[in-house]
Simulated scan of single mutants.
Amino acid sequence: MDKVPMTVRGEKLLRDELEVLLKRRPLISKAIGEARELGDLKENAEYHAAREEQGICEAQIRDIEYKLSVAQVIDVTKMTNTGKVIFGTTVTLIDVNTDEEVKYQIVADDEANIKEGRISVNSPIARGLIGKMEGDEVNIQTPGGTKEFEIDAVDYI
């Protein structure tokens, strides 16, 4: 089984979500028990809703446990900053054509959120940046066309 890279932040978020779901388990079981006491299960909406909620909760628990089992947590704060773009680093880019500055952290697919400045390691921009050095100019093929960036800073934070 291949390991999947994950940031320390991503692992913490998954563990926190798992903890919440595990605390919901007994509450859902209690709701199922109370709904059973109401009588005929065929026409018991509360029972069916509680069972559906239980199924969703269990599926989410299995999904998170699987993700954690295949995760290779990478803590870039413990690495020496060489100026090289790697998984987990935060990269400040300057668009050569517009002088616009953007900052991205390269994270796992599940952690990506462009509005928060986190891009997937499998995104075109991240693939174009991995292995490059601070100060390099890179041409990246994006869905909107080729963009030229200068790597202004690489932070291991």
Rank of each mutant, 00 (worst) to 15 (best):
G10Y: 09
L27M: 12
G39V: 03
V85S: 10
S120H: 04
R62G: 15
T89P: 01
V102F: 13
V154Q: 12
V4Q: 09
T98K: 05
Q72K: 12
K84I: 15
D40H: 02
N122R: 13
R15C: 09
K103H: 08
V85K: 14
V121P: 07
I28A: 03
K147E: 06
E34K: 04
A112S: 05
N122V: 01
V91L: 05
E53V: 00
Q54S: 11
T7H: 12
A126W: 02
Y66R: 15
K12W: 09
I140Q: 05
Y66M: 12
E17H: 11
N139G: 04
A112F: 06
G144R: 11
G39H: 00
Y104R: 15
L93Y: 03
N44Q: 02
T146H: 04
D75L: 04
E58P: 11
S120N: 07
G128C: 06
V91R: 05
E53S: 00
T80H: 09
I86E: 00
K115L: 14
K23H: 13
A45Q: 12
A49D: 12
D16N: 15
A108T: 11
K132P: 11
I157Y: 00
L41G: 04
A126C: 03
G33P: 01
L68K: 14
S120R: 03
R15D: 03
V85H: 12
L14Y: 13
V8K: 04
T90I: 10
M1W: 11
A35R: 00
